[in-house]
C-alpha cells in the first residue's frame, strides 16, 4: 500500500479522516481542559496561602 492510497481510504477519505479528526480533538480537549483547571486551582490556593501568611 502506498502513502497516497492510505490517505485515499478507498474513496472514503472524507468520512474516515473526519471521524478520526473529531475524535482526536474531543479526546485532547478532555485532557487539556482539566489540566488547565488544575493549574489554575493550584495558583488560586497558593495566592490564598500567601495572603494568609502576610496577615499573620
Amino acid at each position: 500500500m502506498t502513502l497516497s492510497e492510505f490517505f485515499h481510504m478507498g474513496g472514503y477519505a472524507f468520512y474516515v479522516w473526519t471521524a478520526y479528526g473529531i475524535t482526536l480533538v474531543v479526546l485532547l480537549i478532555n485532557i487539556l481542559l482539566p489540566m488547565q483547571q488544575h493549574h489554575k486551582q493550584l495558583n488560586r490556593i497558593a495566592r490564598r496561602v500567601r495572603r494568609q501568611r502576610r496577615n499573620l
Binding site: 478532555n30 485532557i31 482539566p34 489540566m35 483547571q37 488544575h38 486551582q41 493550584l42 488560586r44 490556593i45 497558593a46 490564598r48 496561602v49
Partner: peptide, 24 residues
C-alpha cells in the same frame, strides 16, 4: 481523564484544607 478531573474537583472542594496549603 477521570483521574485528572477528580484531582481537580478534589482540590476545588478541599481548597481551604491544610493539606492543600501544604501541597502548594
Amino acid at each position: 481523564a477521570v483521574l485528572l478531573r477528580a484531582r481537580c474537583e478534589l482540590l476545588v472542594r478541599e481548597r481551604n484544607s491544610a493539606w492543600a496549603a501544604e501541597l502548594v
